[in-house]
Design a protein around this nucleic acid. Structure first.
Lengths: 335, 335
DNA sequence: TTGAAAGCGCTAACAG
DNA sequence: CTGTTAGCGCTTTCAA
């Protein structure tokens, strides 16, 4: 591998001069600059980023940890984080934690050893471990999407309570009077918050929601299937369902059809996240969009700012969701 | 940051000894090892990967370039590559090329400068540039999924011709006699191959396919919509459609329904890739699964082997697709 | 079995 | 404006 030294020799200058030409850190005579640039070009020299980083004690990399890459909402996060990072010339190291806090810890460890600029992650269960890690290092960390309510690490999240309110109000607007819900796991804070906003809004409009209209599960399509089946099987009367994400909504919709109900004619269904397939589904799925792009931008920005010595403004950034109306809650559909 | 030197001082040994304890490269007296390990633990020491890599001229990282991260088939690739890499203790640097060969080149450049172990990528348009880059370096590269027919770089791909054959035969098995197709861009080699296999198989069974039954476009849902609309608008007679991927199939299915046709009753539709939502769609989508997991494993394995000095076996690995039958080509459906 | 010393490729004082 | 020098944190001869 040709090194900076080789280039220097070739151009007949000192290594420092070459370094200065490359980084533009100081003025260099037009003539020497030319010679150096020619030398660089002639051997197709590429500065070794490892050496540079070691010397500068900083890399051009950031790390991202997600619970599950191929999950349609996390792949959106991955995409936008990559975009924001790339725009800033930062490279992205990615890890799939599989919701396993041991993997999470291992990944963070690897990242810290590489002196990355910062770590963005979506929360897994165990708190203490990571908080300790973050305390023992000066590497910026920021939590995205899934944070604890009383998160000790800076975080940028969605206003989940408000999402629940939006869902309830939209379903009510659509004329639903018996509204059921299929939720994620209540161990996850944001599920509790979404649910709370949902029932509060329902209550405000004088709508009761009994225990048999709430199906708790997880963020999967299968859970949507199970929830809808249970409602039908238990002869629950309902004309609207909110699923805590679009996967759940899809599971509910397909199940309703398979069991002889029509969406939206017999029951309106809405989801949450506005993942890629929500608009492709038939009927297309009414959902609540998360401002993923902005969330990711904020997270990367936070790290970028901190890396360049700027001070942070907020510890917790909470962004607003917005409703996306589609066919699954439409008045009627000829299907 | 505490360094190896600090640990050495703390344990009252030389830096080399600490290094030897950490890497187990040589025998160290049980007693000294203990002292060293205690010192390491007491200061929570983490070896600096950058320094290590600089010294060893090798990292624990690999790079992956995909045309579009949030595309449902590439996120599967990302997921599986991450998994294979992680199993080998390798970290993944990821780049979204947006089908732009300039971005591709920039990304590869960044990667080479970091001395990553190898690069896995899905092909973008321009060949020469990357081939030159790969020639000028000893970094292993492997192309996955999208390769040129006459690829100059080792590659692991799907048998696309055979996919076309499978699609045609399945539709014929379902009793279709007038089969249309909505394809990806024929500039992409794999689309031509899929198509060739498709029409060859159709021909073998005595089925003609006229130009108006072929809608060329790209790998998007919208293309599926356009294709189906065109067929309907042009009053093409058809009872089966193969879309070159599941996105296209979904676009066709939803459009057919919206325009008063039923899938699979009036027309059978199948896709390709078996992306996440294919089984969640209603009707669930019959498709041709790519062995992504194995493809990714092979690609990472290739790099891993090459890094550790082993020799390569094959230059081109071509894996077999397999049919996944679901509702969209079922006999009848009560929908 | 352990230590001293050199060096991976780069940058940044410090001189000149 | 340019060169010399030291050193980032690690591994690895080479000697002892």
């Amino acid at each position: 591998m040709t090194s900076l030294k080789d280039v220097a020799a070739l151009a007949g200058v000192s290594p420092s001069t070459v370094s200065r030409v490359i980084n533009g850190t100081m003025f260099v005579t037009e003539e020497t600059r030319q010679r150096v640039e020619e030398a660089i070009a002639s051997v197709n020299y590429r500065p070794n980023l490892l050496a540079q980083s070691l010397r500068l004690k900083a890399t051009k990399n950031i790390g991202l940890l997600v619970p599950e890459i191929a999950h349609p909402s996390f792949d959106l996060i991955v995409k936008h984080i990559e975009e924001s990072a790339s725009r800033r010339g930062l490279n992205l190291l990615i890890f799939n934690t599989h919701n396993d806090y041991l993997r999470e810890a291992t990944a963070i460890d690897m990242l810290l050893r590489q002196k990355i600029n910062g770590i963005i992650f979506s929360r897994v269960s165990d708190e203490s471990h990571v908080v300790n890690m973050s305390r023992s290092t000066d590497t910026p960390m920021v939590v995205i999407d899934r944070a604890f309510h009383d998160e000790k690490i800076p975080n940028v999240i969605l206003d989940n309570y408000h999402s629940g309110v939006i869902a309830a109000e939209h379903l009510i607007d659509c004329g639903c009077t018996r509204i059921a819900t299929i939720t994620g796991n209540f161990k996850i804070g944001l599920c509790r918050e979404r649910h709370q906003g949902f029932i509060d809004a329902l209550g405000k409009h004088g709508l009761e929601i009994s225990a048999d209209m709430i199906h708790e599960g997880d963020f999967t399509y299968e859970n949507g299937v199970r929830g809808a089946k249970r409602f039908l099987h238990d002869s629950v009367q309902f004309d609207g369902i909110w699923g805590h994400n679009d996967l759940i909504a899809a599971g509910a919709i397909s199940t309703l059809f398979r069991m002889g109900r029509s969406v939206p004619n017999d029951v309106k269904v809405m989801g949450m996240d506005d993942v890629g397939f929500a608009r492709m589904y038939y009927p297309s799925i009414t959902t609540i969009a998360q401002p993923y792009k902005e969330m990711c931008e904020r997270a990367v920005d936070y790290i970028d700012k901190l890396t360049s010595g700027e001070s942070i403004r907020e510890f917790r950034v909470e962004l607003a969701p917005h409703l996306v109306v589609r066919e699954s809650t439409a008045k009627r559909n000829d299907r």
